[in-house]
Write a protein that binds this DNA or RNA. Structure first.
Lengths: 124, 124
DNA sequence: TATACATATGAACAGATAATCATATGTAAA
DNA sequence: TTTACATATGATTATCTGTTCATATGTATA
């Protein structure tokens, strides 16, 4: 995608834009770069799978290891591991090793905040 | 919250659960129903597409009609209309008719809040 | 070292989904 | 009513994505 759409409507010979043109120009100015909006969508996409949401929610209060999660949620070890990789890549979870196990937990308060906010909308 | 005995993995002959079992039980108790988590994932899924995010963001301050959006974002009318339908269904946008045009806008502050929260995470 | 346990990963397949195209519906003005 | 404009929608297609299966890597213990 290389199309940059900075088609800002210039004021014409009449000397002033219409109300509507002004609004459209303001929207164009305030719109973040495509790249940022792409990243934003990618972030939400990670939250947008029920398996990953279940996994995230299970870690809401406590760190858990892969087998804990798989057991709790009735998921295969492989599936959990694949999803945790995605969550790691997106910086939504962090982890630490202890012996043979690896304990995962939510990366920061942001993650909790985003989930909570979505929860409010859903529970309406 | 004091140490309460719960019913899941009730203490066995030894008289008490392990620390680990207690944690796992607590997670199980606190986990919302699958149905709710499914809806939550569905909600985030809607935010999880860059076209829809662009559309939502374009309406951050002002209502816009379909053609406005298509023009602003360089998208086909059909594509915008399809996506708006999804946004309508998810209650993320509302709309009103005025003559031949239909003006769409964000449905409530929740939507703005969720986007803003995600934005913070992305901009780190 | 050999074995068992815990987690990660690659490949393949099935299901989901967004864009496009063609067309339909709805609205207003001539 | 005819025409033009604005939006919606169904079908098709190409792409993306999550799960599974098999296997690999990593770690501790006998």
């Amino acid at each position: 995608m290389a199309e940059e759409n900075n088609n800002k409507l210039q004021a014409e010979d009449k000397g002033s834009q219409t109300e509507r043109e002004e609004i459209i120009n303001r929207v164009l100015e305030q719109q973040p770069d495509d790249e940022i909006l792409y990243d934003l969508a990618e972030l939400f996409k990670v939250f947008g799978d029920s398996t990953r949401i279940k996994i995230l929610y299970s870690m809401f209060e406590h760190e858990l290891c892969v087998n804990d999660i798989a057991g709790l949620l009735n998921l295969s070890q492989s599936s959990v591991s694949h999803q945790l990789r995605i969550l790691k890549t997106s910086k939504l979870v962090k982890f630490r090793r202890e012996g043979k196990s690896i304990y995962y937990s939510l990366d920061d308060e942001h993650v909790r905040a985003i989930i909570s906010m979505g929860m409010e909308h859903v529970e309406e």
